[in-house]
């Protein structure tokens, strides 16, 4: 029995010695995490004169001794266009951290000199550089819905309350987002929510992306001059495939947005000054009639047949008076550059 015991004991000791951990320490180094910040590699750019119109991208590289929250700010010195790229790491990899020439929000970058700053959370160090844009990015990579450059599409249907005051709902050329034309939507309808809308047919039945991968992008213009505080845009997207776009020619609207059809909606409050590019993932749209058991809301981008962009505002008088403080104020929700993109928003393409 003693021999048995010794044998088993020896075996255990052998296993014990075999499997001792041999690493030096677990986890990241505390000395580095809590030590002084040090720059290991300086900030470098893969291109100082990018041609963004050719889809060129500028990669950034830098390395420091510990993981920190960093921020790269690119500022167009002529347009004041701005792009911020952030991260938490000890390495900025030019294959990962790239700029495509788009801003974080409008205005767009033009052919101009840009100042670049790399800053770090809780550190005083700032690294600076510059680049010159040889050709600016064109934002037409996607599936066009409308850019209004050739006027309002012939099959499009524009409707507005003609008895409102100062109703626009027409093409304009004074302040386009891109190109030379845009569509104005605004006016004054104190007694009702709806001011008007534009319905456009869409045919994208050859795309393979799912609703999670498709983004709808739309430029929206407003101003802060006597701003109506309850104005918004309602975007409806129809996947009705059995009904013609304009089945009833007498009702001033497309017939693809009935409550009995597979229609999705998105409400966009408009409360800013100037142009903004808004992007929405299609899967974030909500069903228009979610409780209708006869509609199969399966959201298939291939079936998208029409889009309605409606200008609405909270009524300030009459039976539906909800916002009396907005009485007499003009609504402005002008639009331009409506385009579908894949996998990311237009500015991140």
């Amino acid at each position: 029995m003693k021999i048995k015991t010794k044998l088993i004991l020896s075996l255990i000791m052998l296993l014990f010695l075999h499997s001792c951990t041999k690493e030096e320490f677990e986890g990241p180094s505390i000395d580095i995490l809590y030590g002084d910040f040090e720059l290991i590699e300086p900030l470098t750019l893969t291109s100082k004169n990018p041609n963004f119109s050719n889809n060129e991208k500028v990669g950034f590289s830098c390395e420091f001794n510990k993981p920190v929250e960093w921020k790269i700010t690119i500022l167009g010195l002529s347009t004041n266009a701005k792009r911020e790229i952030t991260g938490l790491s000890n390495l900025i990899d030019p294959n990962v951290t790239k700029w495509n020439g788009a801003p974080s929000q409008l205005p767009f970058f033009q052919e101009e000199v840009c100042a670049i700053e790399l800053t770090f959370e809780n550190e005083i160090d700032t690294l600076r550089d510059t680049l010159t844009i040889n050709s600016s990015k064109t934002f037409d990579d996607g599936i066009w819905v409308e850019n209004f450059e050739n006027g309002i599409p012939s099959e499009g249907i524009v409707y507005y309350k003609s008895d409102g005051g100062g109703m626009t709902f027409t093409l304009a050329n004074d302040d386009p987002l891109l190109g030379s034309s845009y569509f104005k939507m605004g006016g004054r309808v104190n007694w009702d929510w709806a001011l008007g809308s534009i319905d456009l047919p869409i045919n994208i039945n050859n795309i393979s992306q799912s609703s999670n991968e498709i983004y709808i992008n739309i430029g929206i213009l407003s101003d802060l001059v006597d701003l109506h505080l309850g104005q918004f845009i309602n975007i409806l997207i129809s996947e009705e495939t059995d009904t013609p776009f304009n089945d009833n020619a007498n009702n001033n609207a497309s017939d693809l947005f009935e409550s009995t059809m597979e229609v999705y909606k998105m409400k966009v409050p408009v409360d800013w000054d100037g142009w903004q590019m808004k992007s929405f993932k299609y899967s974030d749209f909500e069903p228009l009639s979610p409780n209708d058991p006869n509609i199969n809301f399966n959201m298939n981008p291939n079936d998208i047949s029409a889009i309605r962009i409606a200008c609405q505002a909270c009524p300030s008088a009459g039976a539906q008076e909800n916002c009396p403080e907005n009485f007499g104020k003009d609504v402005r929700t002008d639009i331009d550059h409506i385009i579908f993109t894949s996998n990311s928003s237009l500015l991140d393409q």
Binding site: T21, F25, E26, G27, P28, S29, I30, D31
Partner: peptide, 8 residues
Amino acid sequence: EVIGQGTA
């Protein structure tokens, strides 16, 4: 500790 955490 058998090995350190974040330091030797």
